[in-house]
Simulated assay, not measured.
Amino acid sequence: MGDALRRLAFCDEIVLVADRPTQRTQEIARRHGAQLVAGIFPLDSQRRTAGAEACGGDWILEVEPDEQVDSALAWEIRATLQMRPQGDWFEVPVANYVAGALVERGWGGVLGSVRDARLFRRGAKRWPPRRFGGGVLSGASGGALKGALRRQVAEDVGGLVERLNRLTALAAEDRAEAGHAGGYGAVHGLGHFLGSYVGRAGWREGRLGFLIALLAGLHPVLTHLRAREILETRRRTAGAAAAPELLKVATR
């Protein structure tokens, strides 16, 4: 985290949003001159909204904890904003690394993207209330930058599987909160696999590309099954709680 904050020194201000931050997190924020927004954020959208609202500038650069801004991208961002652009948001390329190696192809959807609208005017991006998912943009695109954010997706193959496990759990909670598990996802899963392995040329990354495509295909299936599991557990719990009340009525 410290290195990521250090690389944001080119910004006019740094806002760090943390859910129940530890003493160490608070110390790191102070050391790098970051404004710490601390709280309890059940939803990812709440955390992002709180961060955007705490920013005082006209433009916001959104950076994840596992990402870093290199000097070339920092210079490009400053130069772009000094030209007073007409657009409301810019797409920023993302360079995805696994075990320290750059993996260029096969990304898309839940595991990782190769570009995202991370530089935007205040108010040009909002986040619907949910645990998982991207933001909604408004206004006009200013184009795409050339420099890339460096994202450490996972330290190893196991980290990729853990990432999928975490993301499907969040997506399943969102679906269960909406009261449905969605479709089974088998057809969508096959489409995601082919889209990653063939459409986005994941096959060119060898075994790692196949794994990324496989995990992308499993995402809709696992999300559906986990959402069903949550809903069924809630129904059983509600039924068990209602049983004593029914017994009381029957014995009166």
Rank of each mutant, 00 (worst) to 15 (best):
M1D: 14
L5I: 10
L8T: 05
C11Y: 10
D12N: 03
E13R: 04
L16K: 08
T22E: 12
T22L: 12
T25E: 13
E27V: 10
A34T: 07
A34R: 04
A38P: 11
D44P: 03
C55M: 03
G56R: 06
D58H: 00
L61G: 04
L61F: 12
S71L: 13
A72C: 05
E76W: 13
E76R: 11
T80M: 09
M83T: 11
R84I: 09
V92R: 05
V92C: 11
P93D: 14
A101C: 09
V103I: 12
E104K: 13
G108S: 12
V110A: 10
S113R: 06
S113H: 08
R118Y: 08
F120I: 10
R122M: 00
R122K: 04
K125M: 13
R130F: 00
G133W: 04
G133N: 01
S138M: 05
A140N: 10
G142L: 04
A144S: 15
L145F: 02
R151L: 12
Q152M: 14
A154Q: 10
E155H: 06
V157D: 13
L167W: 04
H180N: 14
H180R: 15
A181C: 13
A181S: 15
Y184P: 11
G189Y: 03
H192P: 00
G195M: 11
R200H: 13
G202D: 00
G202H: 01
G209K: 06
G209M: 06
F210H: 05
H219L: 00
P220C: 05
L222S: 01
L225Y: 06
L231S: 09
R235F: 09
A238E: 14
G239Y: 09
A242I: 05
P244E: 08
E245N: 09
L246S: 12
L246P: 06
